[in-house]
Design a protein around this nucleic acid. Structure first.
Length: 492
RNA sequence: CGGGAUGUAGCGUAGCCCGGUUAUCGCGCCUGGUUUGGGACCAGGAGGUCGCAAGUUCGAAUCUUGCCAUCCCGACCA
């Protein structure tokens, strides 16, 4: 690498950017604010997607697909939602190009082909989906309706960052309809748990579950629940959200059902989503100056085997041995790559797979084969050891689980150490500047104070943790009475 | 969208202020050989609309204007 990766705080953004690009996850695209997800990054996304999809199906959901275009009249039906997204929409106004009469070989938008009604490229799909649900729901027998879609959405952000905030991104959005408020709230919290379980158990990133303040709520929701993760530079990242939408969308799109007593009522709704932003969370939660560190459960490659040889004969011997090991690992369901490409030398491969974050590397040469061992290196701790070939596959399987657990424990310990109580304004600012992380502090509960704190400290209320402990206190800014602490942080 | 910086080969760069032969260097790439237990070495070679467009000039990577993109800091946000 020409330029060294460094995760020092002052270079953190640069480090993150370089890492995304050099590790082969993604690249800047020629299109403003968009990115190209490269095969390695997409393989990671597929693993994450497949696991989430299984979890959605285990909780009774099914997949469907809805249109990319949302007619403006539908988009504006739920006022708060429309207002919330209005500033960041891409809009289709025409449907045809024609040759430019003044400029040969160039095309211009055909002014004759102006759409009567503009189409909004979905920034989220509530509008188009609820307009569709209207035709699907008549009776309580049609409920609950539990649907998810995997899709791309577009939000015309002012400032973009690879994975964290791109103009176009991939995500899943669940949209459910229920007969009762209780059931919808239960669904909202259930999906929040699914997200927390996925992010913690598969991505090895600990999260805090909580509810957003009204200021930070999703446009059109009654309540927004979230999982908040902590990055290594001490900034917070919203990793997923689950919204209780009340009857707002049902009323906006006139979705009514008859209950058992033939009484008409509007349905209750939820929506929930996670996006490719999770990949950004993964990178910033685990990586080091040598590159990415992938949690084994979702790593595109869990094990890489690198042969060390001199000359063709020794290569043949090692190939034979390695292929045997590959077969054993694959038999246990381990994602393994044997890299006997002759174009690069072992040292180069070691560095490259570290950059890509492959959890376990196995190196084997004639020396090892004579002793019936391999050299095994962990990416997370960088420990190397000599391991017997007999029983290797079982050992690796267990090691992968150990690495997964180790990564989570390490991130959890970091997160715990970075949750600090502050009881005065000075202490609050000092902690934000010097330590970072979550600051647990009293707040008087008003949006006005929340705004002032944000203005003066750049910190926002990330969430009010679920099952938050109630305690008497005074607001760090206004000194007014407060009943509980909330979590503040500077955030991405 | 406001402020700042940057854009020269796949990557990283020198040259720009003060215009002037064939645009510098390193990595990577190609060929041949020697190599292979932590990003190998030697020899030879290929690769460039100097971000794009217009302008000034005998002459533009260099000066002017506009546009585009990237990064950083804000505002906005999954």
């Amino acid at each position: 690498m020409a330029k060294e990766l460094t995760s020092r705080a002052e270079d953190y953004s640069q480090w993150y950017n370089d890492l995304v690009i050099k590790s082969g996850l993604a690249d800047h695209s020629a299109v403003r604010g968009c990115m190209v997800i490269k095969p390695y990054g997409f393989a990671l996304w597929e693993n994450m997607r497949d696991q989430l999809d299984r979890m959605f199906k285990d909780t009774g959901h099914v997949n469907a697909y809805f249109p990319l275009f949302v007619p403006k009249s539908l988009f504006e039906a739920e006022e708060k939602n429309a207002e919330g997204f209005a500033k960041e929409c891409a809009i289709v106004t025409h449907y045809r190009l024609k040759n430019d009469p003044d400029n040969k070989g160039k095309l211009i938008v055909d002014p004759e082909a102006k759409l009567e009604e503009e189409l909004i490229i979905r920034p989220t799909s509530e509008a188009i989906i609820w307009n569709t649900y209207k035709g699907w729901i008549q009776s309580y027998r049609d409920l609950p309706l539990l649907i998810n879609q995997w899709a791309n959405v577009v939000r015309w952000e002012m400032r973009t960052r690879l994975f964290l905030r791109t103009a176009e991104f991939l995500w899943q959005e669940g949209h459910t309809a229920h007969a009762t408020k209780e059931e919808a709230v239960e669904e909202t919290l259930k999906m929040l748990d699914v997200y927390a379980d996925f992010v913690e158990q598969y991505m090895a990133v600990p999260v805090i579950k909580g509810v957003k303040t009204p200021n930070e709520r999703f446009a059109g929701a009654e309540d927004t629940f979230c999982i908040e993760a902590l990055m290594q530079d001490g900034k917070a990242l919203q990793a997923g959200t689950s919204h209780f939408l009340g009857q707002n969308f049902a009323k906006a799109f006139d979705v009514k059902f008859s209950d058992k007593n033939n009484k008409l009522d509007y349905v209750w709704a939820t929506s929930w989503g996670v996006s490719t932003r999770l990949i950004g969370a993964l990178i910033m939660a685990h990586s080091d100056d040598q590159g990415l560190i992938m949690p084994p459960k979702i790593a595109p490659m869990q094990v890489v085997i690198v042969p060390v040889y001199k000359g063709e004969e020794s290569k043949t011997v090692i190939d034979a041995k390695a292929n045997g090991i590959v077969a054993q690992l694959k038999a246990l369901g381990i994602r393994v790559k044997y890299d006997n490409n002759d174009n690069s030398r072992p040292g180069w491969k070691f560095a490259e797979y570290e950059l890509k974050g492959v959890p376990v590397r196995i190196a084997m040469g004639l020396r090892d084969i004579e002793n019936n061992v391999v050299e095994l290196a962990r990416r997370d701790t960088k420990e190397k050891s000599s391991v017997p070939v007999d029983g290797l596959a079982g050992y690796v399987l267990q090691l992968l689980e150990e690495i997964q657990q180790y990564m989570f424990n390490k991130a959890r310990a970091f997160q715990k150490a970075k949750i600090t109580k502050a009881d005065s304004w000075d202490e609050f600012i000092k902690l934000l500047d010097e330590k970072g992380g979550f600051i647990s502090a009293h707040w008087d509960g008003t949006g006005e104070t929340e705004d002032k704190i944000k203005e003066q400290s750049k910190a926002t209320i990330r969430c009010i943790p679920l099952n938050n402990q109630q305690e008497e206190g005074i607001c760090i800014l206004t000194r007014k009475p407060s009943t509980q602490r909330v979590l503040f942080a500077r955030a991405y």
